[in-house]
Design a protein around this nucleic acid. Structure first.
Lengths: 157, 157
DNA sequence: AGTACATCGTTAGTGCCACTAACGCAACCG
DNA sequence: CGGTTGCGTTAGTGGCACTAACGATGTACT
């Protein structure tokens, strides 16, 4: 059947490779990404859709550039992404009268509805992802990961 | 200067996004990958080089297909990779007399030397990656990640 | 007022990675 | 013998992070 290589492969991978944190991270992140992508695809959504909608809910309407900063999506990729969202009527793009360079992006009613459904979906995916871990273990994991992320985000000076 | 988006961005990312395990994983894995790639590039190596060399050390000479299984690298990508390694004289490709479909890949003396140097390099990168964590915390992290990986690797049956 | 500079949305393109498809060839298995 | 499976190899796909450049617009400085 599927000759999928995300599993460790037929032969045992060398212990040295299996135990390297960087490889472990990459591998699990890939499994996670796949899970998220698949589950969201079932709902005609992509993870970027979700990220933008959440950003709009948490800080209100914004320019494309600001959404880009909030979500970490490059502004060059934001264009097509917002096209997809606008196509689905989840978001509205309007020129900003106060600054004619900008578009103001705001969520539609459908967007808000969709977002609450995606919230639930995303939660179940996280649950599926962390299934083998207990509650406290999940907190440990996310805590440790958050510390790594913060440590490696610009020393900011 | 660098308009690098791996940091969380100028504006605070929404709390909901920042706390999602799948996003955390993706983000940290990306930071880790970058670190590894950069450090190895300084030594004219790529992570795949290292993986193949380790696989050869741990289980001896092997066909390309078996190396592919050991390392998780697709056999279609293995071709160019082995070309790079052979170019650098780290590896030898010889036809297998016992099975004329196969090549037997084995490490050269230079390959063994290079590998021990890369071992050290890789170790320091892992250290750099996990810098903010204590010893026990590192074990916790890798333990939790390994459980996730094993859980999501095919239920194999 | 004029000029230098920064920011906006947008288009195009790069490089890497995981992955698929197909090929000709060789080995294995009934 | 004939069908299936495994091999190395080539080519190509799609997604993602990221860069470069553009014209248009806004801001700051003198």
């Amino acid at each position: 059947m599927s000759h999928d290589m995300t599993d460790a492969g037929d032969q045992a991978a060398p212990a040295r490779l299996r135990s390297l944190p960087s490889r472990l991270l990459a591998h699990v992140a890939m499994q996670a990404d796949r899970l998220v992508t698949e589950r969201l695809a079932d709902a005609d959504a992509r993870k970027w859709h979700y990220a933008v909608l959440v950003a709009l809910r948490e800080a209100g309407p914004a320019s494309q550039a600001e959404l880009s900063r909030r979500t970490g999506i490059y502004r060059s990729d934001m264009v097509a992404l917002l096209n997809e969202l606008a196509e689905r009527d989840l978001v509205e793009r309007a020129p900003d009268p106060a600054d004619r360079r900008r578009n103001v992006i705001s969520m539609t009613e459908r967007g808000r509805d969709r977002l609450t459904r995606l919230d639930a979906l995303v939660d179940t995916v996280q649950d599926e992802l962390l299934a083998p871990l207990t509650g406290p273990e999940r907190d440990q994991l996310t805590g440790l990961l958050a510390r790594l992320r913060d440590h490696h985000s610009q020393p900011s000076q």
